[in-house]
Design a binder for these strands. Structure first.
Length: 282
DNA sequence: CCTGCCGCCTGCGCGC
DNA sequence: TGCGCGCAGGCGGCAG
């Protein structure tokens, strides 16, 4: 379940191992992996040869490789996606979806994705910011993130705070795990109406989001310093330090009360019933 | 425009 | 043992 910190680790890996290299060929191994590329697999494969990767960018959970002609390769890891750097001679992974080879005959870039919620597309003119993600808000560790504008927009919403945190057009990069962790750190109940949040509470919540992501990034930052780029949310490097997510019936690290799991949008929310009491009327 | 909800996918773990 | 089901969940698209 890659969220912002995991995706940023992948971006750094791509920056290190792929920028400056010229593509020789691209192979789509499973058409669903390029379903967002409306022109189809053959068009995706034809667009890449000869192009040189000039940068690796990220916004929220989206990644893109800027190319020397102003175009870009856009990628989203979805639930289970991985971008791997592997020698061409290495055996295929069971869920290998896309392969990109380079003219230098060095290691390939492979997109592996078990559940195929993720995917890639070739975006003409997308080097700066690919059109399909123009609606994605800046993320909380982006220097250009506008805290005041975020607070105002958040409090204008007529919804619950966790729904708002998961809305990538309001703030990007936050998924179910870090939403629960940040809400716990800020002692906010997931169902708190956004309209009822004070500016101070929004500021504290944003601080908690940055903190939990910063911790994750620090923990994960060591795993890309080798010949591979890897994301694996399930066995993730950060899962050990989670306070509430997935910890039903286990003691709250702060007060010891058992963590509760509650249904939320056909999924789950985890919280401490003492530190994060349900707001009146919610 | 705004908000809420569905369905896409696959593997795993559980209960019967 | 084996089967079926619930669960994991980001996000585009659509309904109201």
């Amino acid at each position: 379940m890659p969220e912002l910190p995991e995706v940023e680790v992948v971006r750094r890996g791509l920056e290190r191992w792929v920028t400056g290299r010229q593509v020789r060929s691209a192979q789509v191994r499973h058409p669903r992996a390029v379903r967002r590329h409306l022109a189809g697999s053959a068009d995706f494969e034809a667009a890449l040869p000869g192009r040189t990767v000039v940068a690796a960018h990220r916004r929220g959970k989206y990644l893109w490789l800027a190319l020397d002609n102003g175009d870009a390769v856009l990628a989203h890891l979805g639930m289970s996606g991985q971008l791997l750097i592997r020698p061409a001679a290495e055996a295929d992974e069971p869920h290998l979806r896309v392969t990109i080879d380079f003219a230098d005959e060095g290691p390939q870039l492979r997109f592996v994705d078990q559940r195929t919620f993720g995917g890639m597309s070739y975006e003409r003119g997308g080097a700066e910011l690919p059109a399909p993600i123009a609606h994605i808000a800046r993320d909380p560790i982006d220097p250009a993130f506008d805290e005041a504008a975020f607070g105002a927009a958040l409090r204008r919403r007529r919804t619950e705070v966790k729904r708002a945190l998961l809305d990538q057009s309001l703030i990007s990069g936050v998924g179910n795990i870090y939403a629960d962790e940040a809400l716990w750190r800020a002692r906010v109940h997931w169902a708190t109406p956004t309209a009822r949040l004070t500016a101070a509470r929004v500021s504290s919540l944003l601080g908690a989001i940055r903190e939990v992501m910063g911790d994750a990034l620090a923990a994960g930052g060591t795993s890309f310093d080798s010949l591979y780029v890897n994301v694996n949310g399930e066995s993730g490097y950060f899962s050990r330090s989670l306070a509430v997510y997935g910890r039903r019936d286990q003691p709250c690290p702060r007060c010891g009360r058992p963590i509760v799991r509650e249904p939320f949008m056909n999924r789950s929310s985890f919280r401490c019933p003492r530190c994060q009491p349900r707001p009146r009327g919610a």
